[in-house]
């Protein structure tokens, strides 16, 4: 060997933990950026869905306002579901490849790898959401929100995306394969349809209304809708916040625990 590492480096400590996390965030963002299919899908699909709902189904749905003003928050949440599902797949991809053994045998904190994936997921979602909202405005979406309301809506959405991304990371850790990660995370794509995303819940049969009123997505959607277009929010803002924080805490603790203890075979 010609040269060896000149200094013997130290491991552990806060500075290293921050540095490691940044390095792994960089990795995940690079991987996301280069996985062109997923990136394009996570932006194009919500746009297509929005076109579909606004121009195809929307005419037949009466929400008491221009349908696009009603549906935008729903599309945004649908978009986070897709984003989360691809996060689950990229975590599963790590877990099922040899890479995980290398990462786990490095002197770094076990949460750093997942934090990398989750951060990339939030960044990808923020980009997709921004594009969707700009496109919606081009299509006739007329939000009435003040700066504060925009900020609150963005804050709630970011928190929700963060929670959902940690949940997706946990599913990715559990999954036995990339395919099963995509199956496990299917409910994230499906749940928005059982909410007030696309139609008001009072049009649903009563058993379904019960489900859709009490699942986390409806309060988030109603809050965002209220903030952006001035519909009544009531106490749903707090319910939405509670769900997001609750999911975040449970998913974060669960995912990092699973990551540490999950072994192949």
């Amino acid at each position: 060997m010609t040269t060896t590492a000149a200094v013997s480096p130290t491991h552990g400590g806060i500075a290293n933990a921050v540095g490691d996390t940044l390095t792994l965030i960089g990795r995940s963002i690079r991987l996301t950026r280069r996985n062109t299919d997923t990136l394009v899908m996570s932006i194009v699909l919500p746009l297509l869905m929005m076109g579909l709902f606004v121009y195809v189904f929307g005419g037949a749905i009466d929400t008491g306002t221009a349908y696009i003003n009603y549906v935008v928050p729903g599309i945004v949440l649908l978009c986070t579901g897709y984003g989360a599902s691809s996060t689950a797949m990229s975590v599963a991809n790590d877990m099922t490849s040899g890479m995980i053994d290398r990462l786990r045998s490095l002197p770094i904190r076990s949460s750093a790898v997942l934090t990398g994936h989750v951060t990339a997921s939030v960044a990808r979602n923020a980009l997709a959401t921004t594009i969707v909202i700009l496109a919606a405005i081009a299509m006739g979406f007329r939000p009435t929100a003040t700066h504060t309301e925009w900020a609150l809506a963005a804050g709630l959405l970011l928190l929700y995306v963060l929670a959902l991304s940690w949940l997706a990371a946990g599913l990715g850790v559990i999954a036995r394969s990339v395919e099963s990660a995509s199956v496990l995370s299917f409910f994230m794509l499906f749940v928005p349809y059982l909410s007030s995303a696309f139609v008001p819940t009072d049009t649903m049969p009563s058993f379904l209304r019960g489900i859709s009123e009490h699942q986390p997505i409806t309060p988030v959607i109603e809050t965002v809708r209220g903030l952006l277009t001035g519909t009544p929010i009531g106490d749903r803002g707090w319910v939405a916040l509670g769900w997001a924080v609750g999911i975040l805490l449970v998913a974060f603790a669960g995912s990092t625990w699973l990551y540490r203890h999950r072994t192949r075979g």
């Binding site: 491991h11 990795r27 690079r30 991987l31 996985n35 490849s97 040899g98 890479m99 995980i100």
Partner: peptide, 19 residues
């Protein structure tokens, strides 16, 4: 952590990022 700083592992499956 100390042990991980002194060792390395090359597993049966290649541990490289394709992308």
């Amino acid at each position: 952590t100390t042990v991980r700083g002194m060792i390395s592992l090359t597993g049966q499956y290649s541990a490289v990022d394709d992308e």
